[in-house]
Amino acid sequence: MRHRKRTWIPGLLLISPSLILLAVFVYGLIGWTVDLSMQDRHNARPSKGFVGLDNYDKLFNHDINDRFTHSLLNLLVFTVVFIVGTIVLGLLWSLLLERGARAEGFFRTVYLFPMAVSFVASGVVWRWLMNPGQGENAGGINAIFEGLGLHFLEGPWWTDPDWGMAAMAMPAVWQLSGYVMALFLAGFRGIPDELREAAVVDGATTFQLYRRVLFPQLTPTILSALIITGHMSMKMFDLIMSVSGAQWLTEVPAVYVWQTLLTRDYAKAAAISVFLLLVVAVVVVPYLIHVNRSEKRS
């Protein structure tokens, strides 16, 4: 019998190609972009030198019409509506389904299917649905309201200068609520039956059961849902490009990067990207560390 001792060297060897690839293509390129964001390089020629944080200062303090701040505000509105929307709908659906329902599979399949569709494809139909024409020019959803006589519900959708981004988040909510529902369903089903039974024995009402027993158990699920929807929101590009195209009204940082690259301002595009990365990192890194720690504990 040739008993071999397990040494960790082969493991590290097997994984090392991936590590090298990620070291280069994730961390190396991020480093490259960070460096580029601190260069005086606003055209296709080589950099004219290192300028520290000047490009960031320009973005926040000297951007014409505060364009960058405006794109961040747009992103904020979008993100809040997107996250709240998916979590509310996802939770509602999962509550309606979690104790089993007739044709549960059907409902779940329908709620989830938008997830399989790309933003580019769904953008085609949502651009049509969110037609801002009203009254006799009403189209899309407005036409339904018009037909039902609910004129006051007709809206300008994404063309509203203040809340347009809330409308822009609707297709994203449509697309990902089913996903959040699935997360919650898995969360509910991960809760041991003993907990429910104990609560019932103690005479808890349905409301108390959810409030005191089940929801606290779902904290990790909610956290996952927040992280997933949140980071998707930061990257949002496809949907906006296919619904409105790149324009002031609906500009978010990811679209601003695209527009800036069109004018070959490489350093500025890099600075916007790096800022976006920082926002994501501020949320995701603590989360990853938290997950890592809690795993070690268990």
Binding site: W248, E251, R264
Partner: peptide, 17 residues
């Protein structure tokens, strides 16, 4: 093109406000 981009963005804003 850089100038064009800045003017376009400003006009887009003006159209809304």
């Amino acid at each position: 093109q850089t100038w064009q981009g800045a003017v376009g963005s400003a006009q887009g804003k003006f159209s809304t406000d």
